[in-house]
Amino acid sequence: MNISVLFAALGGAILVWLFLLQRLKTKPWVEQGVIEEGGAVNAAPERVGLWVFLAVVTSLFGLFAIVYNMRSQFPDWRPLPDPGLLWANTAVLILASVALQRARGAVAREDLEGLKPNLTAAGVLTLAFLGGQLLVWRQLIASGYYLATNPADAFFYILTALHGLHLAGGLWFWARAAGAVWKGLESRPVTEVARVRLSVTLCSVYWHYLLLVWLILFGLLLST
């Protein structure tokens, strides 16, 4: 039932947005000539594409969260212990997000020297987070919590794996941006610099989003 509420809200929001923004009430047969359409559409396609993708990811994780919630009501649910390492990992991921935010600021100021260390730090911290998650897995396996032991364990592995995969995908884009930055941007054509800029900005959006997803997942895991 909560799925329906969530999606009705989402659908309603999209509907309202379309109404406000795009004047769905216009009578297109009356107006003629070129109409300039401004507003949110005036953005790089990559940016819009990312936001659409985030909507898809929201649907994916949202559904997992709902299913998690429903399945955890059944009597055979045996919650996991909360590995302390998860707190450390969470802190690392927050730092990665902060570093990327600083990189984004540097890029906006065209401060290439400030960009390099922050961008690098973001990548290293993200890798550290992924490594930390793997460590958590090893700890759990060592203490006998396998994938098939209990649905609570299975959910933990699936959700962390899925979240990790999304971060790893982000790292690919990060690597391309970082590679370009380290080779030096000064001698590059303007369009390419703009692309790197966009890339760093979008990376930061994606990282913040995945941090948010992680915090919600972590909360969910702690609450059961």
Binding site: L18, G33, P45
Partner: peptide, 24 residues
């Protein structure tokens, strides 16, 4: 589907030519 779908949605939102409003 997701790779294609991101394209279709973004193209409709972003790549319409001059004068092609949503309601056109």
């Amino acid at each position: 589907f997701t790779m294609g779908g991101l394209n279709y949605v973004t193209t409709v939102l972003q790549a319409r030519t001059r004068g092609m409003t949503l309601m056109r």
